[in-house]
Every structure is written in structure tokens, then in C-alpha cells.
Amino acid sequence: MTRIISCVNQKGGVGKTTLCANLAHALASLGKRVLVIDADPQGHLSQHLGVVDDPELGLFSVLQEEHTLLQASVKVTDSIALIPPGRQLVRLESVHMKPGRGLLLRKAMQQAALEEFDFVLLDCPPSNGFLVVNAIAASKELLIPVTPDYLGLSGLSKMAKQIKRYEQVMGDFTELWIVISRFQRRAVNREAEQKIRFYFGDKVTPQVIFERAATAESPGHGMSVLQYAPNSKSSDEFVALAEQISQRGE
């Protein structure tokens, strides 16, 4: 069964796009087939994966019910396909919600033949608007990157409350993953990590993603860190995270 995971956090700068791009390649390195959906109008995930030109087709045309998900997809590697945002996706970022409008992406996924993919990863914008609602409603699992500092803790607290509201409407998610990202060996980061693990327990992945130069440099080359620096510690961290997510989900 295809596992659908939204990478969400209403706070910006926590590493959602970095996590999605590198996790996709890490899962592919484990033999998984991955569809990545860039639900952020900025299109940074697409750029990170080497799709610099903004294709006319994309998530916008899917949500407008003009094309299917697979029609709007772009091949990244033999194991990874991408749905770019599309040039006009920004028009939907603050669209007025109406009954049924939050289920457009779920409907598109149900109509598409996604059985060829083991995972669908959605990179969401830092908001709670139309695009995020559609992504979460289409997902069975949530992946929440959080920076280990005061603002990261505050954002995670607000995100947890928001998730409870979604679950009251849609039921519980099968998995909730909290990933500590942009970690540095500083006292404030270690203290924040302890608090996150104390309050959220086994929802926090054992693997921490460190702030490293290779991870920061790879998007500029249109590559994941696994392609840019395959023998780096950063690459090892994302593969370890992919193994944890893959094994626990199964």
C-alpha cells in the first residue's frame, strides 16, 4: 500500500523542503519508489531536486481538475517522480475555503494509479491555508520537522494543537513523525531536544538531522545531499531516518 506523508509545520525555516528532498532520495536508495509533491508556490523543493524551469503543468492544474497527478508529474530519477507547483499555484494559497474544497487533492490521489509508488511525500508551505488543508486531508501520516530552540518548541506546540483539530474531523493519523532538524552541538539545542522527547515520546524519531555544510550546499547544485556528498555524515543521517520511517511504518 502506498504511504502518503505530508511534511508540515506552520513555522517557516524548520527544514521542511530539505527534509522532503533528501528523504525522497534516501528512500529511493533503499529500493523505494517515491512521488514527491511540491505544494509550496515558491517551488523550492522542485529546485532542490534539479527541476529549475517551472513546468506549465503541476499541482495547480491537478487541483483545478484539469489534469491527473501522473499527467502533471516530472521524472527526477528512475525511482523518483515530482509534481511541481505549477506557475499559478500561488493563486490558491489564500483561496476561500468552501465545503469539499479541502478534499480536492485526496480525490485526485484516489483517482490516480499510485500503486507504482511506495511513498508519496508532500512539501507544504508554512501556513494553515487551502494548500496545507488539502495536503493533510490527503495524507495518512504527518512528518513535522522542528528546530531545537525556543521558537521551534513554540511552533511545535501550536502545530500539535492544530493536528488535534484535524484529527477531530478526519480521525487519527496512522503515524506522526517529529524530526529534530538543523541540530547543532550547543547547550540550548540539547536542552530543547530533551524537552521535545519528554513531551512527545516515541513520536520523535531517534535520528536527528544536524546542521551541516553539505546539506546547505546541495540545493544550489540541484541535488540531494546523497547525490552531492554521498559519503558524508549528512547522507548517512537521512538514510538512517528513511530506514526508521520505512521500518516502523511497515
Rank of each mutant, 00 (worst) to 15 (best):
M1F: 13
I4H: 03
I4V: 15
S6G: 09
S6Y: 02
V8H: 00
V8W: 04
V8D: 00
N9S: 01
N9P: 08
G12N: 07
G15Q: 02
K16D: 04
K16N: 08
T17S: 11
T17Y: 02
A21F: 01
N22G: 14
N22T: 15
L23N: 10
A24L: 03
H25V: 13
A28H: 02
A28N: 13
G31Y: 04
K32P: 07
L35W: 03
V36K: 06
V36L: 01
V36E: 00
D38I: 03
A39K: 02
P41V: 04
Q42L: 06
G43H: 00
G43F: 02
G43D: 02
H44I: 11
L45Q: 03
S46F: 05
H48L: 08
L49T: 08
V51R: 07
V52N: 10
D53E: 14
D54L: 14
P55K: 05
L59T: 05
S61E: 11
S61L: 08
V62T: 03
V62C: 04
V62E: 01
Q64N: 13
E65T: 11
H67A: 14
L70F: 10
S73C: 12
S73P: 09
S73V: 08
K75I: 03
K75G: 10
V76G: 05
I83K: 00
L89W: 00
S94L: 13
V95E: 10
V95R: 11
K98L: 13
G100C: 01
G102F: 03
L103G: 09
L103T: 14
L103P: 08
L103V: 11
L105Q: 02
L105A: 07
A108E: 01
M109V: 08
Q110W: 06
Q110L: 06
Q111C: 11
Q111H: 12
A113V: 14
L114D: 05
E116K: 15
L122Q: 02
C124Y: 00
N128V: 11
F130M: 15
L131E: 04
I136Q: 03
I136K: 10
A138E: 01
A138N: 12
K140D: 07
E141K: 07
E141T: 07
L143M: 12
L151A: 13
S154H: 15
S157W: 11
S157V: 12
A160K: 15
K161M: 12
Q162S: 12
I163W: 06
Y166R: 09
M170H: 12
D172Q: 15
D172C: 15
L176A: 07
W177L: 07
I180N: 04
R186Q: 14
V188M: 12
V188I: 15
N189H: 14
R190C: 04
E191C: 11
V204D: 02
V204W: 05
V204G: 01
P206Q: 03
Q207L: 05
Q207E: 08
Q207G: 13
F210N: 13
E211P: 15
P219F: 05
P219Q: 05
G220C: 14
G222R: 09
G222A: 01
S224I: 02
L226D: 02
Q227S: 09
Q227Y: 00
A229K: 06
N231E: 12
S232F: 06
S234H: 10
S235Q: 03
V239R: 11
V239A: 11
A240W: 07
I245Q: 00
I245N: 01
I245H: 09
G249K: 01
